[in-house]
Structures are given as C-alpha cells and as structure tokens.
Computed example of a mutant assay.
Amino acid sequence: MDLFNSEIGSNLLPFDGEVNYYGPIMSIERAQDYYEKLLQDINWENDKAIIFGKLIITKRKVAWYGDQPFDYTYSKTTKSALPWNKELLELKELVEQKSDETFNSCLLNLYNSGEEGMSWHSDGEKDLKKNGAIASLSFGAERKFSFKHRDTKQNVSVLLERGSLLVMKAETQAHWLHRLPPTKKVNTPRINLTFRTIAS
C-alpha cells in the first residue's frame, strides 16, 4: 500500500505501531541550506558492519552525534558520539517542537545516489530506549521509504520529501521492519538524520 498522499501527521501504520509523517517542516530553500551545510560540515565516515565474521565497508556514509560521547552498537560495530554542532542542535530543537518528543543523539546517513539504500531491518538495539521515538529528517533527494509487518508481511510506503519529518514510535520496531529501497531513478545524494534516545 502506498501512502504518498496521506494526511499530514496521521499514523501510516494500520496496526501494531505508530508512524507519523509530517511532510516538509521547513521551506525548500531552508532545507537546501541545511543540506549543503551538513554535506560539508559533518564528520562523515563510511559505515562498517560485521557480517558472517567479515568486516564490510559500505559506500553509504554515517556520523553519530549526541549530548554525551554515547556508545552505540549496531551491525556488531560500536560508535562513540561526537558533540553536537550548531546546525544539528537547531534541527534537534525543531524536531522536538514538531514531534513533542525529546532526543539525546542522532545517527546521520549519507546516501550518495539512489543505488545506495538500506535492507529490511528494525532499530531495536539494546542501547536505545525501549519503544522510544525515532525521528527521521530528510534532505536532498526524495526517496521512497517502506515498512513491512513481521508477521502479516503487509507493506506500507511513503515518499520522504526534502525537509520532511517522519516519527516512528510505540511498538513499531517490535512489529515492523523498514527499509530504504535502492533505485536507479535517483542520481543525487540524500542526507537522513535519525534522532534517537540512548537509554541511560
């Protein structure tokens, strides 16, 4: 099921979770300005994962920032959070105002083109607050984002626009997988900020 024209802020999921899509929360000009600053000023590194005991270096780049030098472990590798910069603090405050949630960290992803994506997964790492909200802010290329129920296999997709906000909360991670499907139709970069809460 595609929900490209869903009601702003309504729950995209039919059951077993809550995903609210707010659409763009800033002007195209402001979104482009943030995109260019993030592209230039963030300490990007190629992501790493250990798969079947082998270290894999991805084309996708990532960065990890937070209130403290939080450790965050996923794909069997651990990152230590860098201190916030000016733009990230501004965006964190904006996202917290729009979502009525609070966050203490942010995992950033840089996809160089549509051929880079993410396979089906959930964000249920033990470092994260259980059933805590995860807010996804998108810049650059517009990309399709999909959900799949673990049991029923039902699919829900949404087009993430420039400067748009999507918030996953409640039991979404327990019951639904999500992915960023690759596409050859997009040849420009996308930056995605995922604001999270590391459990203290």
Rank of each mutant, 00 (worst) to 15 (best):
K169H: 08
L165P: 00
S164G: 12
E161D: 12
E161Q: 15
F147Y: 14
H175T: 03
S157D: 14
D151V: 09
V167G: 04
R162I: 11
L159E: 06
L165Y: 00
A174R: 11
H178T: 06
L165C: 01
R150T: 08
L160N: 04
Q154H: 10
G163M: 03
H175C: 11
E161V: 08
E142A: 13
V167P: 00
M168E: 04
A170V: 08
T172E: 02
L159F: 07
Q173P: 03
L166D: 00
T172W: 06
L180K: 02
H175W: 12
E161S: 15
W176R: 04
M168D: 01
L180Q: 06
K148Y: 11
E161M: 15
T172R: 04
P181R: 04
V158C: 12
R162L: 12
F145Q: 04
L166H: 03
H178R: 09
H175P: 02
T172D: 00
L159H: 05
V158T: 12
Q173M: 09
R162G: 15
E171A: 13
A170R: 12
H149S: 02
Q154T: 10
E142V: 09
L160M: 12
R179W: 07
H149L: 04
R150K: 15
V167F: 10
Q154I: 08
A174L: 11
A170S: 13
A174Y: 10
F145E: 00
V156D: 00
K153N: 14
E142R: 11
G163K: 01
L177E: 13
V158N: 06
L159I: 08
K169S: 13
K148R: 15
T172P: 06
S164Q: 03
M168K: 03
K153G: 07
E161T: 13
L166G: 03
R179K: 14
S157E: 13
F145H: 08
L160C: 08
K148V: 11
H149D: 01
M168A: 06
T172A: 05
